[in-house]
Design a protein around this nucleic acid. Structure first.
Lengths: 234, 234
DNA sequence: CGGCCACTTGATTTGAATCAAGCTTGGTGG
DNA sequence: CCACCAAGCTTGATTCAAATCAAGTGGCCG
């Protein structure tokens, strides 16, 4: 995991204020005065695909803002199984529970090369006490996470495998109509099915021409086809 | 839905401060001065089993604190299916999203006769702006909801039906070792299985003597048995 | 008393897990 | 440079779990 300190941050927040995805991030609403309250360094970290950002149960010392890339949050079961409970896209916050002084509740692993800003728990704590502007953003983050969690339960854990996959693809679709999928193992852990069945289901959607493989794991999606599989009309 | 205004509230918060489950509720940390900021009435409402408290998509005008009883939060799917995404026990808050000025994201229905305190959105809004003491509680509520959501995904939507039911029973177990179950239809909507299969699965656990029916839908649970079914060792 | 509703139980079909090969692909070392 | 190996993916055959279809039961209320 590479690190590079954002030197300017805690001497005035210059770099935060100039952030390229400023309006997406946790600190979106902060102003000059707020930034001056930051007394600990905010570092920029990078994790390669497949690497672990933090581990379940470990001390929640930092919150992270995803700048680029994609993370999965994994939860393990008593019987050894595992389940991916959420995906974090750029702009999202990882490790929110650290702001409550609690250990992490998931293991966070990069699915793609990912860059993040690492914010010490105490910085959020202090800002939270001093400025109300952070509160709304924090609430919004909790809310967004909860909405995604509920959607995953209803969308990706209910119905037959092709329906679930169709719903996932719809969620992942970019404006250009394409979507990038994951290893069959991760796919299975998201949809609650086995690796083999995930493979079969992808093949089935290809055969139905609901998706077309442009390059390995990159698909062009026929939205209307997917929606009709989703609703189980076809 | 019966209503009874808590008269004393907004003239000093006397009744809130004397609340029997005070330390459990959203307003746990408020003090005398905070209560004086409440400028709109907090009513006490009751909903009978099976009645709707609020509907998905409707204007989120109130937050609710559950005093007694039990609520289910239901989410509907494009294909007509439905899924119960959360249960709210006494002390829990329903309709948190209202505090962000957003419409409700679920339909809330009582599973048992339920009593709640109905808090106007604006009261939380104002308190939130004026006192930091509410923030921590709000965050904690979001966090608790998210934890339950994640647990439901991994626990109640993963593995075979008997495992899921065992996990649900463990969650529902009271200190005396008993648990109260629901209609088979609701059970199915929680575990992601059909009504018939829910019925069969309950019968199976009875046959295995992991649970014993004391009275209709009230069971004595053998925790060790349930845990071993959960882990799929037996 | 009759009918309705929730629950149970059985028979059958379908979907997914499991077990077991092959098949690509990329990397390694001879 | 090519042979070989490992990992991830695909595909097939079989078994198993759950959905579906279909009665039948029992309690409760009009």
């Amino acid at each position: 995991m590479k690190q590079g300190r954002i030197e300017e941050i805690w001497s005035g927040g210059a770099k935060c204020e100039a952030c390229g995805i400023r309006d997406l991030v946790l600190f979106a609403d902060l102003d000059q005065a707020d930034f001056s309250l930051i007394h600990l360094p905010i570092d920029e970290v990078e994790v390669a695909a497949g690497e672990v950002l933090y581990t379940c149960q470990s001390n929640g010392a930092y919150l992270y803002t995803v700048r680029t890339g994609l993370l999965k949050l994994v939860q393990y079961l008593p019987d050894g199984g595992q389940r991916i409970v959420r995906l974090l896209k750029p702009g999202a916050t990882a490790g929110l529970e650290a702001s409550l002084g609690q250990p992490y509740e998931h293991t966070a692993i990069a699915l793609q090369p990912t860059a993040l800003c690492r914010i010490p728990r105490q910085v959020v704590d202090r800002l939270s006490r001093e400025t109300p502007r952070l509160h709304d953003q924090l609430m919004q983050r909790w809310h967004d996470s909860l909405r995604q969690a509920d959607d995953w339960l209803t969308g990706l854990s209910t119905g037959k495998a092709p329906q679930r996959l169709a719903r996932l693809l719809i969620q992942l679709m970019r404006p250009d109509g394409t979507a990038t999928l994951f290893s069959r193992e991760d796919l299975g852990a998201m949809l609650g099915i086995t690796t083999e069945h995930a493979s079969r289901t992808v093949a089935e959607l290809k055969r139905q021409e609901a998706i077309f493989e442009l390059s390995p794991n990159h698909y062009l999606c026929a939205l209307d086809q997917l929606e009709c599989i989703d609703a189980a009309d076809c």
